[in-house]
C-alpha cells in the first residue's frame, strides 16, 4: 500500500529552530549562526568582537566543536559567557543541541548570542538553529572560488566576512572575485573584508551587528 507523505525530513529540527526563534524574539536577543570551514578564524573573530564591543553590548557564545573545549575557553577568557557543545564527531549543530545548551546561559539582558557552528561549509547549511541570520566566514588563505563550490552556504547567509586580509599580499585571492560570486548567489549579502588579527575592517562588521540588533529591537 502506497501512502503519500510529503513531509520534510528535517521537520523536527525546523520545528525546534522556529520555537527558539520565537523565544529569542521575546527576549530581544539577536542570534547569529557563524559558519565557515575549519581554520577560517571564527573563534578569533569572536574573541575580537566580544572584547571590542564589551563596553556597549552583552554577548554570549554557544560553541560547537567536534571534540575539544579549546574554543569555549578562548571565548570565555574575554569575559563573555560561553557554553560548549561537543558534537562527538557530528559535522553540524542541531536546534535541539542549541536548545539544551542555552539552559546554562544567563540570557537576561543579553543583546547578541553568537552560535559558532562546527567548521564545515556543507552540512551546517541544512540545519537552522534558531538564528536571525547566518554569517559565513571565509579566509583569504582558502581560495576565492569557495562561493562557487558551496553555493547553498553563501545563498542563505546574510553576511560574508572575508577574514585574514592581512595575508592578501602572500596569497592568490581576488577579493572582488569572491565578493562577485557571493553576490551572484545572494545579491543582498553584506561583505566585510577584515583581519581579526590586525583589526582591519572590523568597524564595518561591528556597525552591521549594531544595525541588525537595532532593527530587530525596532521590529519587536
Amino acid at each position: 500500500m502506497q501512502i503519500p507523505v510529503v513531509r520534510n525530513i528535517l521537520e523536527a529540527n525546523a520545528r525546534i529552530a522556529a520555537d527558539l526563534k520565537d523565544f529569542f524574539a521575546g527576549k530581544g536577543i539577536l542570534v547569529l549562526n557563524l559558519m565557515s570551514s575549519p581554520g577560517a578564524g571564527k573563534t578569533t573573530l569572536l574573541e575580537r568582537t566580544l572584547t571590542d564591543l564589551a563596553p556597549e553590548l552583552r554577548m554570549a557564545v554557544v560553541e560547537g566543536d567536534l571534540q575539544t573545549d579549546n574554543d569555549a575557553r578562548r571565548v570565555a577568557a574575554t569575559g563573555a559567557q560561553a557554553v560548549q557543545i561537543n558534537t562527538e564527531g557530528g559535522c553540524h549543530l542541531t536546534s535541539s543541541q542549541v536548545q539544551e545548551a542555552i539552559k546554562s546561559l544567563d540570557l537576561e539582558g543579553l543583546d547578541i548570542l553568537f552560535i559558532e557552528n562546527v567548521g564545515n561549509l556543507v552540512c551546517p547549511a541544512e540545519f537552522d538553529v534558531g538564528e536571525d541570520f547566518k554569517v559565513t566566514l571565509l579566509s583569504v588563505a582558502e581560495g576565492d572560488d569557495k562561493p562557487e563550490k558551496y553555493p547553498l552556504m553563501f545563498h542563505i547567509s546574510a553576511a560574508l566576512v572575508l577574514n585574514k586580509v592581512d595575508l592578501l599580499p602572500y596569497v592568490d585571492f581576488d577579493l572582488d572575485r569572491a565578493s562577485r560570486h557571493a553576490r551572484v548567489l545572494n545579491e543582498c549579502i553584506s561583505v566585510f573584508p577584515v583581519s581579526a588579527r590586525s583589526r582591519e575592517g572590523l568597524d564595518a562588521w561591528y556597525d552591521w551587528l549594531r544595525q541588525r540588533l537595532a532593527a530587530k529591537r525596532a521590529s519587536a
Partner: peptide, 30 residues
C-alpha cells in the same frame, strides 16, 4: 554550476530559487 546568468536576458544577480532545496519523503510503501 548551481547558479548562472539568465539565458534570456543575461542578468546575473538576484535570481530566486524556485526549487532545488527540497528534502522530503514523497511516499511510503507499507
Amino acid at each position: 554550476s548551481a547558479f548562472a546568468p539568465c539565458p534570456g536576458c543575461g542578468e546575473e544577480l538576484g535570481h530566486a530559487v524556485v526549487s532545488g532545496r527540497e528534502l522530503y519523503i514523497e511516499y511510503l510503501e507499507l
